[in-house]
């Protein structure tokens, strides 16, 4: 103890230690304030998990594992959520299947094909797609798009009538509001984010790799397959996962166009439901266990999207690190 106090006066002025001890109060409190704001992100995420789980606890305790059964009947106090989990998976997968090729295609168009002065307007158009609010997609989806696409569903259904597998997938459409309509609208909505993330990843491919491929006589497509794709594969996978997370959580547009029917069916053109949409549509009039069940579906959705996002960002970070190393 005494050794330390004796040593102090001998500390040379201007050393790092002396400087840090002379830091004024304002400087230190600013650092603490900044740290607190940074920690706020973690605090909010923990609070979300804790507070929503607490509100949902009566659903988890009364239903137990029955929450994963397919019987949603609030009037009879049955709250199995499997139909909504199924709907979320189906609509998100439909959206991904349609959005990913389009998004990667646009990203390649922007980075590899068009000259810079053309790429800027294209980026503006894609950004404009992101500016259209979810609820406007929903309004357009239910009033304009669903009645129109219903005719297409009908003709596809009559075309596949009697063909074994296709009939199960595309048969018996009832209205324009369906899993498939929701999937299409979701595809429009996640295209901007998948495009911009893929574009960022593809832009990090070293120019010298491209030039090398061209020097070997590759055509542009051969260059993309041989030089761009191996380099950006990981990052694009991350972008796709982020798009999947968005598609699972998108609420309002889906709530309007999915048809609101808690069923598990292989018919993609049939009305269905998903997790986000059932919360949005039914939470207002729910009380007791019903409300706890909807809150619990929210908890499940939160957990699913957190897992997907953690994996996605881990993949993106890893491929970004590898790219910097290369």
């Amino acid at each position: 103890m005494s050794v330390v106090t004796q040593a102090d006066p001998t500390t040379p002025a201007g050393s790092a230690r002396a400087l840090s001890e002379r830091r004024p109060l304002g400087d230190r409190s600013f650092q603490i304030l900044a740290l607190a704001c940074g920690l706020l992100v973690l605090v909010i995420l923990v609070l979300i998990a804790v507070s929503t789980s607490q509100q949902a606890s009566s659903w988890f305790t009364t239903e137990g594992w029955k929450i994963f059964t397919n019987n949603w009947n609030p009037a009879a106090n049955q709250f199995g959520a499997l139909a909504f989990i199924y709907g979320t998976a189906i609509t998100a997968v439909i959206a991904i299947i349609m959005a990913v090729p389009v998004s990667v295609g646009i990203a390649l168009l922007l980075t590899e094909v068009v000259p810079y002065r053309w790429s800027r307007p294209i980026v503006y158009v894609i950004d404009l797609l992101a500016v259209v609010p979810s609820v406007v997609w929903g309004l357009w989806g239910i009033i304009v798009f669903a009645p129109w696409i219903q005719h297409i569903y009908s003709s596809i259904a009559s075309g596949v009538n009697g063909i074994p597998v296709l009939d199960n997938l595309f048969g018996s459409p009832t209205s324009g509001a369906s899993f498939f309509t929701a999937g299409i609208i979701l595809a429009f909505m996640i295209t901007p984010i998948v495009t911009s993330l893929s574009r960022e990843v593809i832009a990090t491919v070293p120019q010298i790799d491209r030039e090398g491929a061209y020097a070997l006589g590759a055509t542009r497509w051969e260059m993309i397959r041989g030089a761009v794709w191996p380099h950006s594969q990981g990052g694009v996978v991350g972008a796709v996962l982020l798009g999947l997370g968005r598609a699972m959580g998108e609420t309002i547009a889906v709530a309007l166009v999915i048809g609101s029917s808690a069923v598990i069916t292989s018919h993609l053109f049939a009305p269905g439901y998903n997790m986000a949409a059932v919360i949005a549509n039914q939470f207002g009039e729910a009380t007791g266990v019903f409300r706890a069940a909807l809150m619990g579906i929210g908890v499940l959705l939160f957990v699913f999207t957190i897992i997907i996002n953690v994996i996605a960002h881990a993949v993106v970070d890893r491929s970004a690190r590898r790219m910097r190393g290369a």
């Binding site: 507070s51 609420t251 949005a280 939160f302």
Partner: peptide
Amino acid sequence: LIGFFSDVMTGVPSIIMGLFIFSI
């Protein structure tokens, strides 16, 4: 850690934020 979870938090569905504020 904070940077990583800020990224993750941008992907939290907006309806979850509604449920969260409703609860607290």
